[in-house]
Design a protein around this nucleic acid. Structure first.
Length: 496
RNA sequence: GGUCAUGUAGCCGAGCGGUUAGGCAUGGGUCUGCAAAACCUUUUACGGCGGUUCGAUUCCGCCCAUGACCUCCA
């Protein structure tokens, strides 16, 4: 159907994408843990997979995109005292986990909308699938690959590894893990140190708890994804996505759980996005160097010299291939801001462009346009190379502007080429890359006021009353509206 | 320590065995009452040392540096 190739972490090579069921794609992406605010690093992953989702839709696939919300586990909100969780206080004073989960879920959804990310088809929560998780754990126990100890259940990695390639995804060997795994709580319960929890017994102060065959507790970290992906996508589905840092142990464990329950490698294509770094270091909780998304949008973080629009951030991320690290920097963000503006302005100009029968068709430029446009498809098919798509767009931007006022203004494009270019731009800018206008939308009234001001200014200029004309322009600039005298005598305006 | 990546011009970043990626910034110019925007033009980089090759930034080896995972993490 298409020539899409994606890099499969499981096989460590680019592979042609062939869905299990023709024309349909099942895709599971590890979603946020809603015990706190999302940061810039999280955004990269969700934007990356939004691009993949959008591109698959563009190619004509019917896609079921499942992205979970991790709302179960050992939750504490920053700044809250541990004492909150003990029953000394009145109920409404205490930390209510679901209240916290609701707050950050809402905030997450808000941020995703800011980025113009499409909603997943299904967004299941871990707490809504406790039964499925317990059933899955039962199955694993019945098959002899898990054991219960003191109300907790652990997966027997050693036994699994005797029959299955544990560690294949993340390139790990079991014996190496044995030596290097560090001390953790309750290690003594495990038969082997690399075993991981499927179910954890809840200590008395733990508020999130459910009744299970093994006592009151809560599910282990990995089982929710296996349970929910199986439920909504089946025992074998097409794409599993997530950040590279999840490869081990999370995805490796998912593979093991699903293998025992479903007798399949859960997904055919394992796709991982790389990290955002800041001063060369991964942005992450443990490094204490996160920039929350609300801070990115408001500029309120010591690392930021200004606020950045969500579209600037999206564009910034798309200028890099998703499997490379991306280094955060104000200079780079500012460059993205300007670049995006130029790209968007030229795009708007392109949509208004018309062929001019009185001018000669520029054959050489014609063929460049066609090549640059056609290559965009090839670049996306080559493991989603958005960086190259954008590079081509910028080459076209140059030419588009040249037709307006530059070297090419005495020539024109053929109707076919212009139309093809317009279609490709619209497709990639909006449908595939998901970019949209940064500026707040105007209204009829505003348009009317602006027309009036522009007319007054034009009259003043005609009378060489530059004091008045400059006053209008300067004051508009102060309130964030900039006027441009176009070459053809028209005046356009844009808002910050 | 183990495993795996990465090192590209002022900054961010594609990419490849032989041709200018691209964005932003910088210098010069055009246009303009001025400004902004736009256009033209300027800056030829691939960590170090060897090797393979007619030719390597691109392949191989070694070294140096940085990072990721091995623990919650997009």
């Amino acid at each position: 159907m298409t020539n899409l190739k994606v890099y499969n972490s499981y096989t460590r090579q680019k592979e042609t994408f062939i869905p299990i069921t023709p024309n349909h794609v099942g895709m599971y992406v590890c979603g946020p843990t809603v015990s706190g605010e999302s940061h810039l690093g999280h955004a990269r992953g969700f934007i990356t997979f939004d691009i993949l989702y959008r591109y698959l839709l563009h190619l004509g696939y019917k896609v079921r995109y499942v992205r979970n919300i991790t709302d179960a586990g050992h939750f504490e909100e920053e700044g809250r005292e541990a004492e909150d969780k003990i029953s000394k206080k009145a109920v409404v004073e205490k930390l209510e986990p679901m209240e916290l989960v609701q707050k950050y879920t809402n905030l997450f959804h808000w941020a995703m909308r800011q980025f113009n990310n499409l909603d997943p088809s299904i967004e299941p929560t871990a707490t809504g699938h406790i039964v499925e998780q317990i059933n899955m754990i039962n199955k694993i126990i019945a098959d002899g690959y898990a054991y219960a100890v003191n109300g907790s259940v652990y997966f027997d990695v050693k036994k699994y590894a005797e029959k299955y390639p544990y560690g294949k995804l993340s390139g790990r060997k079991l014996d190496e893990l044995m030596e290097t795994t560090r001390d953790l709580d309750n290690q003594e319960e495990k038969r082997n140190r690399q075993d991981f929890a499927l179910w954890k017994s809840a200590p008395p102060e733990h508020i999130m708890r459910w009744t299970s065959p093994w006592g009151e507790g809560f599910p282990g970290w990995h089982i929710e994804c296996s349970a929910m992906s199986t439920k909504y996508l089946g025992s074998e589905f097409d794409i599993h996505g997530g950040g590279m840092d999840l490869m081990f142990p999370h995805h490796e464990s998912e593979i093991a759980q699903s293998m025992i329950c479903n007798h399949h490698l859960a997904a055919r294509y394992w796709i991982h996005n790389n990290m955002i770094t800041i001063n060369g270091k991964k942005m992450g909780k443990s490094y204490n160097n996160v920039i929350r998304l609300t801070e990115m949008f408001s500029g309120e973080n010591p690392l930021l010299v200004q606020a950045y629009h969500p579209m600037t951030i999206r564009f910034f991320i798309l200028q890099t291939h998703y499997r490379s690290t991306l280094d955060f920097g104000n200079e780079a963000l500012q460059a993205a801001e300007k670049g995006l503006k130029r790209l968007w302005d030229a795009y708007q100009a392109l949509l208004k462009m018309k062929t001019d029968p009185s001018k000669k068709v520029n054959e050489q430029i014609e063929s460049q346009f066609n090549t640059l446009c056609r290559e965009m498809d090839d670049f996306m098919n080559d493991d989603l190379n958005t960086a190259k798509v954008l590079a081509n767009m910028f080459q076209l931007v140059n030419h588009i502007n040249s037709f307006r006022s530059g070297d090419l203004e005495k020539t024109t494009l053929s109707a076919e080429t212009l139309s093809y270019t317009q279609t490709q731009f619209k497709t990639y800018m909006e449908a595939v890359l998901g970019l949209k206008d940064e500026a707040p939308g105007g209204s009829d009234k505003l348009e009317g006021i602006m027309k009036l001001l522009i007319d007054i200014r034009r009259d003043a200029k005609a009378k060489k009353d530059y004091q008045t004309s400059d006053r209008i322009r300067n004051q508009l600039t102060e309130i964030g509206i900039s006027l441009k005298d176009e070459k053809d005598g028209r005046v356009s305006f844009s808002m910050d």
